[in-house]
Computed example of a mutant assay.
Amino acid sequence: MSAEDFRIVAEDESLSCQDSVLEIKKYKAHYEAIMKEQKILKDGIDNNNYYAKEFKQRAYEKKVSSEEENNKRSKTIQREKEKCRAVLEENTKLQNEIQKMREEMQRLDCKNSNLKKQTEISTAVPERKVVFRGNTQEGAHAVSFDVNPRIVYPMEGGTALITFEEKDVAQKILNLKDHSVQLGDCTITVQAKPIQFLVPSYVEMETQVCPRRILVSNLPKEEPEERVLDKLDIHFSRSRNGGGEVEDREMLHDSGTVVITFIDDKIAKGLSDKQDHDVEFGKKKHKVKVTPFLNGEISQMKICNSECTRTVLLTGIPDIMDKDNLQDNLEIHFQKSANGGGEVEGIIYNPLGHTALALFDEDSPPDNQSES
């Protein structure tokens, strides 16, 4: 190879090396651009991952918050529903109470109307003459009517009722229970037992004015009963006297009054409003008083057990002598203080095989107590 050829080859190699360097630099620059682009892409991916993570976290928190809010809203709605239900129930209850109150008011109005009718009359009780005898009693300001008790007690055979003047004596006899009574040559044993009754302790009555009856009082005492009834019948059956057709008339002997019943229920009120009526008895007139007749029924009654404090029941009495002698011997025995007895106020003996009805009246208060 000649020198010129070597030079050409060398120049070619030199040019080839320069091209390679340039190409390397080119690739290096391209690589660096790629690396820079990759870094930018990596940074973008990292940023996207970060924001994705933040988004997920915020989405989760938002979901939890939304669920909590929904739960709170559901609970609030449930509470409001319960309040509405309670209000509806309370409203229904109040409506029922209002209805009951209306019914009660109607009942009270009706009762008030009846009471008003009763207050318009002077009295429906037969007139009785009263007198003040100088006695007083605590609580006399309380107006009341007393009902005297009258109890009919059926006595068994072989028993006796004995009433002592002092209740302490009766209690002593009851405490001893068995008593040996000497009857001539023989002795009998009787048992002392208390007398108990079921008596009313509280009575409430509903009364109303009868539209067809009147009560006539202040009747002439000297006239026979049949004549009084006939004259009243004639007088009150006449329309000019404000009367009408009479259906029935009845004498109430315990009060000395007459009940007259009319066929028409519009007659009684006019007669009772006038009150005083002059009725002809032969050649003279007598002023009678007409008041409404009250019908009544017991609406409430309470009973309690009541024990006679001065009366003792004697049982187990054999029929060994006549009634009067046996009764006298019993009274003598229980009058003696040695036998635990005392002063006897009353005694009745009912032999075996016989029946008797004992009447118990109100026990009179002692003389040292004041009464009205």
Rank of each mutant, 00 (worst) to 15 (best):
G353T: 06
T309K: 15
Y51D: 09
K39S: 05
L313G: 06
R227S: 04
K81D: 08
N49S: 15
G242W: 00
S239E: 07
E226L: 09
I121C: 14
N112P: 04
L94D: 08
V228Y: 04
H179K: 00
E204D: 15
F197C: 14
K283T: 08
D265C: 06
S372G: 13
D276T: 01
S370M: 06
M251G: 05
H277L: 01
P351K: 01
K81V: 12
N218Y: 05
H235M: 03
A52R: 05
H30D: 15
C308E: 15
Y60P: 01
D12P: 04
P292F: 03
N325A: 15
Y153T: 04
Y349F: 08
T257E: 08
A160V: 04
E362Y: 07
G242Q: 00
N305R: 15
K36F: 05
E222M: 05
E331F: 11
L326T: 03
E345F: 08
A52S: 15
I34R: 03
E37G: 07
C186N: 04
K28A: 09
P224T: 00
R213S: 09
G158R: 02
A86N: 13
E297Y: 14
L294D: 08
S2R: 10
E307R: 10
D233Y: 11
D322I: 11
Q300R: 14
E127N: 12
N329H: 11
S16K: 15
E90Y: 08
N96K: 07
E307Y: 05
V279S: 00
R107H: 01
A160Y: 02
K117V: 04
N49L: 15
L41T: 09
A59G: 03
T207S: 07
A59F: 11
Q300A: 15
A140P: 02
Q182P: 11
